[in-house]
Design a protein around this nucleic acid. Structure first.
Lengths: 143, 143
DNA sequence: GTGCCTACTTCCCAACAGAGAGTTGCATTC
DNA sequence: GAATGCAACTCTCTGTTGGGAAGTAGGCAC
């Protein structure tokens, strides 16, 4: 018999993303992705500016996401949402209005991942200037 | 006149990863990458198992990294290290021994990013079982 | 000379991301 | 009742990227 804790304990030992064959390597690859980060941020409610503390998970329509994530292709958006749904991070709800309304919402698992990925976006925005400076210096060093 | 706060304020408004044209979108793309996450983890010292609290930043040789990050191609390792160096997240040190020794080490900026990305790896490892379960259910739903 | 070592660099090809046009289903308009 | 519109995809084509393998540089050892 295997309890939930047993499995969690086993997982902690078993999964090591440094190993090429480990499934967590694939999972890391899946979640280390610009669109995943942005979709999670969008659905978690840190709308456009700096992620604030009062982030309320919001259900969003396909077209809203597509508008907010400027530059995402429909194919990528659909593909990313599908895999997030498969992995249990978002739920997809179809409402038979006319035209049909499809909304996406974070699950608890998705929210827990968002707590991590939101850091990525805010880090990128917060350290952008510094990185730009570093690139300038590097490129100037050996023109 | 522009004060430091002004600039910080301006940056907060200016950089928005949701916008396709924003440089922080490119930066997010750069850092949301399996190899970047793993290299940062390696250099920060969370060696193989669960990231622990006593992570001491370590300088590592090219060949050590190549061995630890199982499955990384030399091309990708070099390319990723170069871009991390350019962005000021790692330093590259050449010691003229024979044969030559090249070591990589995290900068303060790199360490600050590591605090974020380490979460990604540990999340992947911690929630692997749950995600695997979800995939099973999803795939069974509509076989 | 030839060989060996580390740390790359180059080349080729298969896989993937993005752009844009096409599809479905229903409901309103002419 | 044919045409139009809209949301949410799906398909197809093409350019970019990642991985594998083989080649390079430079110094010493034999």
């Amino acid at each position: 018999m295997t309890t939930k804790q047993d499995r969690a304990e086993q997982a902690r030992i078993q999964f090591n993303a440094f190993l090429a064959v480990c499934p967590s390597r694939q999972l890391l690859d899946r979640i280390s992705n610009k669109w995943v980060v942005l979709i999670l941020c969008a659905l978690a409610g840190d709308g456009d500016a700096e992620p604030s503390e009062d982030d309320a998970p919001t259900a969003m329509r396909y077209s809203e996401l597509s508008r907010l994530l400027a530059g995402v292709s429909q194919k990528m958006l659909t593909q990313t949402l599908r895999s997030l749904e498969r992995d249990g991070m978002v739920t997809r709800t179809v409402t038979p209005t006319v035209p049909v309304t499809v909304t996406y919402e974070l699950t608890d698992l998705g929210e827990s991942l968002h707590h991590v990925t939101r850091g990525l976006r805010s880090w990128a925005q917060a350290h952008m200037a510094e990185v730009l400076d570093n690139r300038g210096s590097y490129d100037a060093r050996d023109e």
